[in-house]
């Protein structure tokens, strides 16, 4: 085999000649990757180009004529009170969900990590909301938080306070939905933190004890917290992306009434309810830019991982 290859390349041109087997593998490689490549163009490539195109027009789905409007969709967006309100709402939502979802999950994970026998039980209990269909659970929350029929307000009344109309007070709409968001994300983040905690070598914690870190707080600050750094970064990034994509709770609980629309819900309304395709495309690009900024660090990390 080898000798044959050598004689062929010696006889051929200066450029290294690929053997028949090599050429066959290249052909196979292209063939195997082809369906995925075609779908990639159809699902990602073309739509992104179309999106960019739409965003520069006043196209409305179903309309016969449209015209090129340049960047005016974007300028319009930044003067559109509804869109700006949606941005502010989403930012408020994220500002509640990210710290509560991350630090709450860290606390739970630290407590669960120390349990030996009951660990599986706690993991299951806290993870259950992650798997549940959010649309159905949002309906349940609506009922739970009902001013007269729900047990939450019954408890508030029993403690001697006035009942709170969580979904009837405009100022409380976003915080209430954020509460549901935290409820759903806690278990997910807890599992990520648990994986991070398990990866910390036991030796390090013991070394810290020998070095004089007597209280759990000292050990947490000396070893656990710094060692969880990458995990925490990741959890913050995924939580913020999830927060910026909030949609289901709005669709079920408020449908954007009383000024409670979020970024994605506003995008849905413009694009699919009002058929303002061109304007919605501009909003989509703004949404995409936010998500890309949030995920850039993570992406570069993955890029490195793929090659090494």
């Amino acid at each position: 085999m080898t000798t044959l290859d050598v004689s062929v390349s010696a006889a051929g041109p200066a450029r290294p000649v690929r053997s028949a087997a090599e050429r066959r593998l290249i052909r196979k490689g292209l063939l195997f990757a082809a369906p995925a490549m075609v779908l990639m163009v159809a699902i990602y490539g073309l739509p992104l180009v179309m999106l960019g195109g739409f965003s520069l027009t006043d196209y409305q789905l179903g309309a016969i004529d449209w015209s090129f409007v340049g960047l005016s969709n974007f300028t319009k967006a930044f003067h559109d009170p509804v869109f700006l309100r949606a941005m502010a709402n989403t930012a408020l939502y994220a500002a509640i969900v990210i710290p509560c979802g991350v630090f709450g999950a860290l606390g739970i994970a630290l407590l669960v990590h120390g349990r030996r026998r009951s660990r599986a039980l706690w993991e299951t209990a806290y993870f259950l909301p992650v798997t549940a269909t959010l649309v159905a659970m949002a309906t349940v929350w609506q009922f739970l938080l009902h001013p007269t029929l729900g047990p939450v307000n019954a408890a508030i009344k029993a403690l001697g306070f006035e009942p709170v109309s969580f979904l009837g007070t405009p100022a409380l709409l976003i915080p209430t939905m954020a509460l549901i968001g935290v409820w759903q994300i806690l278990g997910f983040n807890m599992v990520l933190f648990l994986a991070g905690l398990t990866a910390i070598p036991k030796d390090l914690t013991e070394a810290a004890r020998m070095d004089g870190a007597k209280s759990p707080v000292d050990r947490f600050l000396t070893v656990t917290w710094p060692m969880l750094g990458p995990t925490t970064m990741f959890v913050v990034v995924t939580s913020s992306i999830t927060a910026f994509k909030v949609f289901e709770t709005v669709a079920v609980l408020t449908k954007g009434r009383s000024g409670s629309e979020t970024l994605l819900y506003e995008l849905y309304l413009e694009g699919f309810d009002y058929s303002n395709t061109g304007y919605a495309a501009a909003l989509t690009l703004i949404f995409l830019a936010i998500v890309l900024v949030l995920s850039i660090g993570q992406t570069l990390r993955m890029e490195r991982k793929v090659h090494y």
């Binding site: 699902i43 739509p47 999106l51």
Partner: peptide, 8 residues
């Protein structure tokens, strides 16, 4: 995210 591709 798929939401960004939904419109086209």
């Amino acid at each position: 995210p798929v939401q960004a591709l939904a419109l086209p």
